[in-house]
Write a protein that binds this DNA or RNA. Structure first.
Lengths: 192, 192
DNA sequence: CGCATTTGCCTACAACTATTAGGCAGTTGG
DNA sequence: CCAACTGCCTAATAGTTGTAGGCAAATGCG
């Protein structure tokens, strides 16, 4: 009997690929077992449960996304950094829709804290160093940027923009421009 | 044998309530049957499939949300309308998390076109009449508003803002203010 | 009103997924 | 070389989806 060489890492990676192919909510322990050509029960030596698998895929995706963002931010500042960061999110979601969906999985606080979620917030704050925002405005801005990026990508992925002829790429650029303008003028234009 | 009086409408409504109680992805034909105290197979006279049920709940939520938004927009304009619209989304998501999650279900284009999704876009455009945006900027702005609102609500719901002490309500107000400022100054500050 | 048709819910069944328990063979360390 | 361990297995249980066919209640028509 040849051993398949299952490990948590390989299972997680394969789960991420499976998610991209068939959708994150179609990722199942059974499907993963089929992919490795082993019996379902064999996976339970490596995974606690189906939920465990999904959590691992989510953390994997979050880490991968954070890595990409960190790379993209290196050596950039201001609007340049803002645009690069935004593009990383959008490109990742387009390239790996299943993983992006996985990254949206609701994690319990302790799991989330241990994962890469914190890195994302830190990077957003790093971008804002290029603008002149004091607390609590900075936190508001972090939340706004996160909302726009996630919201846009999420709506675009779900086909929400497909019934209008305007090129989504143009809207994306317009939005990034707008955010840059907003953040630059914010210090001189305090809360109305 | 007393009949339970099942109808598609009652099932959809109960499904929406169930979603709010246990989460949209926990909504199952079996759970719904239990709630009506009938056998599972009985539901299949009214529903084509589990997916059919979820789609109906999604359309129900979209319509309900559109109704609320329409009511909130009546008699308002400009920033007033913007804030009211934003609050409708946020309040709905907080009040009915399961339904809000349902509204995010990816619908096939024809189903989406038949549903209330179009009304949402139209209302967003109506709000923008209070600002002075020509096409394609208007479309960009529609997409940006949708992204911010959806993204914020989605991130807040998934606990993304809970690790910082800043009050989410303050961030929300700050963001609505910022969007208003942005839209008002846009005509005088074209794409950089 | 009486009867036929339709409708609504049922039982029975088949397939797939999740999860646990326990076994045996292959690998590894002393 | 053998003992312990690891990795994948078979077997079994439970829950969910979905289909087919049946029986009784509601409905409608003469």
């Amino acid at each position: 009997m040849v051993r398949a060489g299952l490990t948590v890492e390989r299972l997680t990676k394969a789960g991420a690929e499976l998610a991209d192919e068939v959708g994150f909510d179609q990722v199942t322990v059974s499907a993963l077992a089929r992919r490795f050509d082993v019996k379902v029960a064999s996976l339970y030596s490596h995974l606690k449960s189906s939920h465990d698998l999904k959590t691992r895929i989510a953390l994997f995706a979050l880490a991968e996304l954070a890595d990409r963002a960190a790379t993209a931010l290196a050596g950039r500042a201001g609007k340049d950094a803002l645009a690069a960061f935004a593009d990383v999110y959008r490109d990742y979601a387009r390239e790996h829709p299943g993983r992006y969906a996985a990254a949206q999985l609701r994690l319990d606080p302790e799991t989330a804290a241990a994962g890469a979620g914190v890195r994302h917030a830190q990077m957003t704050r790093a971008i804002l160093r290029g603008y002149d925002l004091a607390e609590p405005d900075q936190t508001h801005a972090v939340r706004m940027l996160g909302s726009v990026f996630h919201g846009y990508v999420s709506l675009e992925m779900s086909g929400g923009f497909s019934h209008t002829a305007v090129d989504p790429q143009e809207s994306w650029s317009w939005i990034v421009d707008s955010l840059d303008t907003l953040l630059r003028t914010w210090t001189t234009t305090p809360t109305s």
